[in-house]
Structure formats: C-alpha cells, structure tokens
Amino acid sequence: MKYTTKNEMEKKETSDEGNVTKKAHCNTVEGLKENWQKWANDHCEYQKHNPFSSNRTMTVQFQKGEEGYGTPREGSRTQQRGQSAHAHIEKEVDELCMIIKSIGETGEDGKPRVAFGPLFERYVTISNKLVGVLLTARKHGRISFEGEMLWQRRDDDVIITVLE
C-alpha cells in the first residue's frame, strides 16, 4: 500500500493564464476527501486478501497437493523471511560440519567423525542450540548419528559422522 507524502500532494498546476500556480489537493476539503477515499479503497482491496480479515472475499484457496499449497505468496514479506531463515539455518549447519571436521578424526570410511561429548564442549561456546542444529543437519542428510535425540552426559560417546 503506497501512502501519499505531503510533497506529492503539493504538485503545482498551471492555470489558464500560464503564470499563476496553485497547490493541488493540499488543503482543500475535496483534495483531502479524494486522498482519504483512495486510502480506504486500497485498504479494502488489501483486506480482501488478508487471511485474518472477516471481509475475505477473494482469497485463493489451494487444495492439498496443488502447487502453491502451504507456501507464501510470491514476492511477499513472508516468503522473504522464510528464505532468510533457510539461509541462516544452512549457514549454521555448514558451521557445524566445519567444526566436526576441525576437531574430529577421520574414520575407516574416510569421513570425519567426533563424539558428542567433545563436540558439545566445543560448540557450547559458539551456540546454545547444538542439538537442534544436529537434528536439522541429519534431516538434510549432512550428518548421521545413532538415536533419536542426544543428551549431554548420557550420550557423550555417541559418534557423529559428516556424510559429505
């Protein structure tokens, strides 16, 4: 939604004589009324697509399995925030794999690996969300480890292997 600034409202118009100017839609009641009506019309159009509005008439409904189902509108701020979050998570997973490679040892299969205990001790100074990043990295097929969840002390000897 675009709001009109005072400078945009103060555009000058030339009268019939060519040398007299006046400000259009600046202080006249008619100009204020037109600007208000434009804003109201824009807002009504916006509310038609707002999923939280009770005035929703033009919302596109996707069925499960259709393209576009469960995804934000193209070019929306929601889509931008999602892309930013994915990039941030990818960066954290890359950092985790780099740390495992730097403090771990190479196994018989040539892949870097480290026990959870030493990784936890090293990573806790970097971030407090190691287990969440480990689960995300496993979900994306970047690492592997036994068990569903890793707990400090109990799973200190569980081996975490980088798969790439």
Rank of each mutant, 00 (worst) to 15 (best):
F52I: 01
F52Y: 04
Y3W: 10
R153M: 05
Q79W: 05
K6S: 11
W36E: 08
E34V: 10
N27V: 07
Y123L: 03
T136F: 05
H25A: 15
T59G: 01
L150E: 00
K33Q: 12
T106L: 10
E13T: 14
S102A: 11
V133R: 01
S76C: 09
K12E: 12
T71Y: 09
V131M: 01
L150F: 01
G104K: 01
R113A: 10
L134M: 00
Q152P: 04
G70Q: 02
R142S: 04
D156F: 03
R142N: 04
V158A: 02
T125E: 05
E90N: 11
C97G: 07
I159C: 05
T78W: 07
K23T: 06
G31V: 09
H140D: 11
K101T: 05
R73P: 09
E105W: 07
D42A: 08
G147K: 04
R73Y: 12
L134C: 02
H140N: 13
K23C: 06
T14L: 14
M1W: 13
G104F: 00
D94M: 11
I103T: 02
G141I: 01
F52L: 05
I99F: 03
A40W: 10
Y3K: 13
D109E: 14
C26T: 06
I89R: 05
R73T: 06
M149S: 12
L32G: 13
N19T: 15
R138A: 04
K139L: 13
T14Q: 05
W36S: 12
M98Q: 14
E45Q: 10
R113G: 04
K11F: 08
V131P: 00
V60E: 13
A115T: 10
I159M: 11
E74P: 02
E67N: 15
N27Y: 14
G117A: 05
T5D: 14
N128T: 14
N50S: 03
E95L: 10
R56P: 01
W36G: 09
I89T: 04
S127Y: 02
P51W: 00
M58A: 13
D94F: 08
E67C: 15
N35C: 12
K64H: 12
G147C: 03
G110H: 02
L119D: 04
K2I: 07
S76D: 03
V131A: 04
